[in-house]
Amino acid sequence: MVELKPIRMDEAARYLGYGDQTPDETILTLMKECEAPLMEACHPAYSVGIFELECCSEDEVRLADCALTLTGKDIVKHLVGCTKVAIVAATLGSGVDTLMRRLQLTNMPKALLTDAMAGAAIEQICDDIQSEIQGKMPLFRQTWRFSPGYGDLPLALQDELLAAVEANKRIGLMTTDSHMLTPLKSVTAIIGLQDMTKELRKVATEDGDAISAPVGACAAGACAGCAYHDSCLTRQDKTAEEPQDT
């Protein structure tokens, strides 16, 4: 089970543009005041599906026994070296949307802070889901979370992604006509799972051959000194380019 933990204020501050700086006392106090109503409004729910990676071409990934086909070169790169794929859908629930609407009418500063804190909360939930997967599949290494709309993976895949984990029914997560997730504070993600007991293979990419590091070389934090640093497609020190949520 994934439960909502105290919200990481430093993460929320980062979303608010503070970078590594700490907000002043007034803002921190306000954030504290926002926390209880936010926690009360949150009803986190998630649905995970783990699928075998069936076949992978230059710009398409298919999953075994699943109607979902992932398209685009970027998702192919993301899943290089993976044998399984976890599809994750998570949401804080519609209560947060209602809270946000009310706050925007009554207290805009709190609305802004709550929005960022809710952003931090949903990311925490996703981190916890990944830990849970890790606990169940200790021999697999996970990639970072790739979502529809990143790179050339179409946002329109959102509906099929939800269908693959029955997210409509199981967690009440829907899309709009333009494929946006509702409730608003929700995430869908595609996580590649690498079997660490197997050697990684050479893969063809548009830039020519690329090599993923052999598993044995991948001690935590070893990326910087690794001989495969530049060519490795599953490097752990890569920073995710995530679109910023305002």
């Binding site: 949307d97 409509n168 029914k169 709009t176 509702t182």
Partner: peptide
């Protein structure tokens, strides 16, 4: 008859 799969306003756009 199951849900449509879209949320009605104001939660969604339908």
């Amino acid at each position: 008859i199951g849900p449509i799969g879209r949320l009605i306003e104001p939660l969604g756009d339908m």
